[in-house]
Amino acid sequence: MHGMNSPTVHPAQRIVDLGFGFILSGALSSVAELGVADKLVQGPRSAASLAEELGVHAQALYRVLRLLASVEVFSEDAAGLFSLTPAAEYLRSDAPGSLRAAVRMLTQRIFWAPTGEMVDTVRTGQTPFDRIFGKPFFDYLHHDPAQGAVFHQGMSSLSDMENGAIAASYDFTGLSSVVDVGGGHGGFLIEVLKLAPQVRGVLFDHGQVLAGARIAQAGFSQRCALEEGDFFQAVPKGAEAYVLKRILHDWNDETCVRILRNCREAMAEGGRVLVLDTVIPPGNAPHGGKVLDVMMLASLPGRERTEEDFRKLFAQAGLKLSRILPTPSALSITEAVAA
């Protein structure tokens, strides 16, 4: 496998490398699942000694680690001992900004299996998810708590990498109240509360998600309420800002308009809706949103959107696009106000 992004890769080799991409995903998935990186914190070890401790097959583990070492995740020395690399550090459970849970989520069967049937999706425009798993994406997660936990922990892990930088990209200091709609465990809202001492927050989500909320342990119980509910029905009333972070991209246009309209009806006079999703730019340049968009295509009814797409959604919900602010992450802050 040549360096995936190296400009010297022959075009034919690029096609072959891309074709093999799922092998790397599978290898990464297996070591994240097994927690291999945690076992290397004390120093280099052989695959055999790791395999013995983990209760797995030594030669199989060696072969997977050898592949990952070729792409700078782990490295093998002349004595056959594997050690952590800067990239492998992120697979440790306790590393700052750990991505172990994120990798487990991204390579979960809920994404993996439908992606393997992409040609059907392109033929029909429909995800095979319901056929493979027996029910739509979020219903399935709701009914399989183990898969649901992997998903929500993974989302929190992925979000922790970006939350601080995104919150700092918007001036929340002039606001008194912010509702994080479908805000999960509260990672983003915590960053807003840190940056803007006068904000009172509401973390709004399903009860089983709020059970994992981190508001109290972050010390913000006094300034932030947890509220259970369903954003398809209604959202908490009277706030100045409604945050929809990685929410709209999960749903088709019609459903998005319903969610946005609920925010429009609930918000205080002069309020705003902040959509935190990727905004796909024109042109051929690589963009995280383009990858995410096809992941959505495979497993969910949603998609990533362009500026024009957001303009249209807002108009149907009685809102208008006021500005789009870039952030250091792949997400942008798309602000809408009353039309």
Rank of each mutant, 00 (worst) to 15 (best):
L54V: 05
M295R: 07
H185S: 15
D180R: 02
A47E: 04
V71Q: 05
L61N: 03
G154P: 09
D160P: 00
T255R: 07
D250E: 15
S93D: 14
F188W: 04
H142V: 03
A196V: 10
I215G: 06
P86A: 09
V9F: 08
R123L: 15
S332C: 11
V36S: 06
G184F: 06
Y140C: 08
G174I: 09
Q59T: 13
K245P: 00
A101Y: 01
G302W: 02
S299K: 05
V337R: 09
E265S: 05
F204Y: 15
L292A: 13
L189N: 12
H152W: 14
G289H: 06
M1I: 12
L260P: 03
G229V: 08
R45Y: 07
S159W: 02
R45V: 06
G219W: 08
T121R: 11
G21M: 13
I110S: 08
R311H: 14
L203S: 06
H143Q: 12
P11D: 13
G19C: 10
N284H: 10
G3E: 15
E117N: 12
A69E: 12
V119L: 15
S329Q: 10
A239W: 00
Q316W: 02
R214D: 04
A32P: 05
D309I: 07
H185V: 14
G134K: 02
H57K: 05
A338Q: 12
F111C: 04
A37P: 03
S29C: 12
S159G: 15
G174F: 09
M1E: 14
A213F: 10
S83N: 10
G55I: 12
L189I: 14
I247K: 00
S157I: 09
G270Q: 11
L84D: 02
T173K: 13
G187F: 01
L54C: 07
R246D: 14
A213Y: 07
A37R: 01
G43W: 09
F231L: 13
E162P: 00
C224K: 00
L158W: 03
L18F: 13
K290G: 04
V56S: 02
G43M: 08
A241R: 10
Q42F: 04
D130S: 15
S75C: 06
L84C: 08
G3Y: 13
L321P: 01
T8Y: 14
G43R: 04
D171H: 07
E72L: 09
K245L: 01
L193P: 10
L91P: 01
W112R: 06
F151P: 02
D253I: 01
H10N: 13
G19N: 13
H143Y: 02
R311M: 06
T127R: 07
P44F: 11
V31S: 02
G116Q: 13
K290M: 08
A113K: 08
P326C: 05
L106T: 10
V41H: 04
R272G: 07
A165F: 08
L244R: 02
L248T: 07
L292T: 11
F129G: 05
V199P: 03
V16Q: 03
G148W: 05
